[in-house]
Nucleic acid binder design. Structure first.
Lengths: 343, 343
DNA sequence: AGGGTTATAGTCAGCGCTGTCAAGACAGCG
DNA sequence: CGCTGTCTTGACAGCGCTGACTATAACCCT
């Protein structure tokens, strides 16, 4: 069983070369205070010469840190998941941390979640956990983690934002921006395709949109259709909304996938986008540019959310409790699926 | 800096409770031979009673294994990447291994790849590396890994399948199956939308398809169009193929995304799918069921590929060299985008 | 029965690092 | 000048486990 890596320089090698104690090398590596500039220079030179990189296993065994954070996610939305991973990975890379991913089946139910979580935590130490939707709104998970004093950062939570560190965007404000945009483009008969309303995001988007419309264009006619964020529900909702004599001139779907479904419904009904009806999505996911015309949508800073959450976890290392709240900006991406009625 | 986990039972605790030496516990945990049934039972009872789980850091520091494998992937195809992650994760979970993700920019060029790879390997030991496309066909990466005696498993390689362990599917055979299917459905004027031909997969699909057509329906008229696996290239290719007086009755696109593009071209041209033209994709990706009608396509066992590669890596732990070759089955998924001309 | 071999269990050092404690250096001050 | 307090450095044990080695017990053969 050969070691996978070559013989690597150890702290002892560095200490010998720099003619100092191992502990001093450790101090320099860990940027502890009370280290003279001269010592630091000597050590750093030796480190550079030997290409020394501290051994993670030894560090974690001897010390109280593991240099590892875990990302608790589920796979149902591939785009979402992969962007989370990207963001978290980047932050880890920057700080020399490792990212461990934990794929948890969101359909397993909260008991199933806890079982798996227990396993995950028992197998190894970790410096913190990034909790993503839908887990980030699970009170039992938070109880469990607080119980065991595991630091965690929540991504896009809607409940109890005071618990743990939270990183999120303002779904309601983003939906309101869509409302502004549609009204500014002259639309007054607007369809709304909802997401699964047990999700905080679906509720926030709906309310943000409706409230803003009520403010700025109370005369507007709004028709709603149920949806569940999936493509097929978009087709159904699109047909329900459009196959009437008094069809809307614009439709806002709660996410891009269902917006793509609405577009398909348009194709089936012989309705042109955006000439006959304008469509807005939400997420700026893969599917936003896998339809024609490309979808006007809200850019969600998904990988930034994960990045920021990871940064909080790493920076907060040592703190017993974390309680930051970070709001990240969304952005309306104007593409080709909305027509200005005034022109 | 509180430890993230509670005080956990150690091997010494187990040894004390079972009244045996630590080494014996270690033997049981590692399923070494030369352990009597009686001893094993005692130890296992103690382990169960204490809920003992071996500490990964200590194991990896003391021993020659790290219980960690890394997945080298790139993010350009979210569906592909996430399925790889899922498959690898499942296999790791089964064996109590950890999966470390390494996100490498495929556009960084081979020098960039090696730099990053060096960093990745220097930071920690690992028991093996899963190398995914496009990295799995990079000779310099293989050289590098062989040089350092790092065991690796390659996913979907096209070159030098004798190096490392390889897990793949037969792209050419799958494309041939599409040819069979289209011909069986009465199509003799067929369009082919190629993928980026610098990829082995694109070449294999093209040749597998063309060769089979030449065999079973030499009279067929084949028209080809360039593509690059992306949605937009599908639109262009679709227009090129269909906007003529002698349009094909069926189109085979090298992947689902470009097939979706072809469908969009159809919608723009007022051509109905599948009534006027049939369409086949390849991958069974997310987009296959995010278009209407749902796409007939080839199911690629992506997560199974990653699963199998991980299993090989874990099972082969201890072997100096790995040289397995595993072929996984594809499958034609018949949905609604192909019409039988005979009926 | 004796010698050789194999199965089973234990001892102990040490993987590479960090935490704790203590000692030396040095400045400030009465 | 001696004492205290702060800064800087080092010595050393030990995190939890495994590899190499040793010590018995059990077994086989002639």
């Amino acid at each position: 069983m050969p070691h996978v890596n070559q013989a690597r320089a150890t702290m002892a090698d560095v200490a010998r070369l720099a003619n100092v104690s191992e502990k001093s090398v450790s101090r320099v590596v860990n940027q502890e205070s009370h280290v003279s500039a001269k010592l630091r220079e000597k050590v750093e030179a030796a480190i550079a010469e030997l290409g020394y990189v501290p051994d993670l296993a030894a560090r974690s065994l001897a010390g109280s840190r593991s240099f590892t954070v875990s990302l608790l996610f589920d796979t149902r939305g591939p785009n979402y998941a992969i962007k989370l991973i990207e963001g978290a990975y980047e932050a880890c890379k920057r700080h020399g941390y490792h990212l461990r991913i934990e794929n948890l089946d969101s359909f397993a139910g909260e008991d199933g979640w806890l079982d798996r979580l227990g396993e995950i935590l028992s197998h190894s130490r970790l410096d913190g956990l990034i909790v993503t939707p839908p887990f980030s709104d699970s009170a039992v998970i938070m109880d469990y983690l607080e119980d065991r004093q595991i630091r965690f950062a929540r991504i896009a939570p809607f409940k109890e934002r005071g618990r743990g560190s939270c990183v999120f965007m303002d779904d309601a404000a983003a939906a309101a921006q869509v409302a502004d945009f549609l009204v500014a483009n002259g639309h007054r008969k607007i369809g709304l395709v909802n997401g699964a309303l047990k999700h905080g995001a679906a509720i926030a988007r709906r309310e943000g949109f409706l409230n803003r419309i009520a403010q700025i264009a109370p005369e507007a006619e709004i028709s709603e259709a149920d949806g569940d964020f999936l493509f097929e529900s978009g087709i159904r909702a699109g047909r329900a909304l459009l196959d009437t004599s008094n069809a809307p001139t614009a439709i806002f779907a709660a996410n891009d996938d269902s917006a793509a479904g609405v577009m398909t419904a348009c194709a089936q009904l012989g309705i042109r986008v955006p000439d006959d009806v304008s469509i807005c999505g939400f997420d700026d996911s893969w599917s936003a540019t896998a339809v024609w015309p490309y979808l006007t949508t809200i850019y969600q800073p998904i990988s930034e959310l994960a990045h920021e959450a990871t940064e909080l976890l790493i920076a907060g290392n040592g703190a017993a409790v974390m309680n930051d709240q970070v709001l990240l900006a969304h952005r309306l991406i104007e593409r080709a699926s909305v027509k200005n009625l005034a022109r």
